[in-house]
Write a protein that binds this DNA or RNA. Structure first.
Lengths: 258, 258
DNA sequence: CTGACTGCATTGTCCAGTCAATGCGGCCAA
DNA sequence: TTGGCCGCATTGACTGGACAATGCAGTCAG
């Protein structure tokens, strides 16, 4: 391993290790050589080895468990299906098959709910068409699976609509907050989903107990009534290493040409 | 800035800089102090400052332009709307408004197309229900906007279906490959979308000219005919810093309770 | 005026070392 | 046998240095 090409040594070392991982030569949970071993093996300083390892950690391929060493990371995603909100059962056999394949059977769910009245963040205020000074109710949830944080879901509602309703109580709403909104006269019939792909903020790293190098999907849903009034903004943060997001789509008979 | 709490110095420095960036004190394209200046300012070694900067670069907040210095990164996402395939015009006024807000007017698109017959990757073979040995045609596209790579789109078709068709020619198909498939008797009426959030592979970094710390969304669409036969798998790789992915959804009258 | 060269500030790579933190395994006492 | 303590291997944090690479700005020859 010499500096023949123009790739820096730490890159070459990272590439070699990555190759061993993706090829399967190093299986999930396998232990990598220690920094000292690689230092001798490649004839570089320990800092250079560490830089290579840091890169792999940042790519999410490797985790470091002090002082046991570095290990190949294991992944197993769960399905996140935003359409489930309007459509409990998938309408196509393909989606059905897809979901059973990734089904997380036998895992134990849990959630922590927190309710507050706050000034809305700017992006929420914009989506809810609020005036400056208008307040919102927010239900912040962290969902756990088998004790591990799994995703964050913060739902914002215009305070004027949900004041004194069941939504303000920090308890699980079995029939869903959407149903409560409907009972209050604000049934959502349309939703707009936005999905951003990002590196997490430190706060998200903390709330989701993310390893370094784990990107997140930020899923923002805005729910509208039949009159086009926005009544709910839900922000879901999904760790990239634990989720697949899926949609099913159908061609409309009235709209062939596309 | 001392080691009072238990956060390492490089973390504290990164946090301080991040705060300045997110608060707007440091605007997009603003130049950060040089490593030497920060070394003196915080009273640490240059390597420690570099570690803080590396973290911000990895979070995608900062870019380093040697030898000009480090700069606050500017972002401006484009909308990616998978539903456009089956539905050219959005059906809700909200989606319309959303799209005009992010519209990339006046930008110059370009694409590079490459066609090949290959053994399908395992995940593609599975989604197309292929037997071992079956081959596929693949149209690999890199789309550019204003000279910058914008996304990768690789579409796979069972070779048995598209052999000798227009799809095999490495030219743009104005009416769309889906229309050609329909003319061949394989009109897609349903699609299943999967969305993965990942750090990019080195190959993706190269093809998309990604900065470090840029995660990607991998969007996999499987298109089905009315009989449920999969006829197309499209893999789109979207740099997280250049895209918002969006869907619109509607409650179905026949399916209220959800 | 133009084009080529050169100096220079800045970041990139790498080294050899120090000391701290951590968790496991083994040792020892009760 | 059990529980607590300690050593130790390993990674984390940090230092102070060296030299390379790069692109800009200014200089100088034509």
């Amino acid at each position: 391993m010499t500096r023949l090409g123009r790739n820096p040594m730490y890159q070459q070392i990272a590439d070699a290790l990555r190759e061993q991982i993706t090829s399967g030569e190093l299986e999930p949970d396998a232990k990598l050589p220690t920094e000292a071993e690689m230092r001798d093996q490649y004839g570089v300083s320990r800092e250079t080895v560490r830089k290579a390892l840091a890169q792999l950690v940042n790519e999410g391929l490797v985790i470091s468990a002090r002082p046991q060493g570095h290990f190949v990371r294991r992944r197993q995603p769960m399905v996140f299906r935003p359409q489930a909100e309007f459509r409990k059962r998938p309408y196509s056999p393909e989606m059905d098959a897809f979901m059973t394949e990734y089904a997380g059977e036998g895992r134990e769910p849990r959630q922590v709910i927190e309710v507050a009245i706050v000034e809305p963040p700017e992006d929420v205020a914009k989506r809810l068409h609020l005036e400056p000074g208008d307040l919102v109710a927010v239900r912040k949830r962290v969902r756990y699976l088998d004790g591990e944080p799994f995703n964050i879901n913060d739902s914002y509602f215009p305070l004027a609509i949900v004041r004194d309703s069941e939504i303000m109580r920090p308890e699980d709403i079995a029939r869903g907050a959407n149903e409560v909104l409907a009972e209050l006269g604000y049934r959502q019939v349309r939703a707009l989903d936005e999905l951003y792909v990002r590196m997490p903020t430190p706060e998200q790293v903390h709330r989701l107990d993310l390893g370094p190098g784990t990107p997140v999907g930020v899923h923002v849903t805005t729910g509208f009534t039949g009159e086009g009034q926005p009544v709910r903004v839900a922000v879901t943060v999904l760790p990239g290493d634990r989720h697949v997001i899926s949609y099913e789509r159908q061609r409309e008979a009235s709209n062939e040409g596309a």
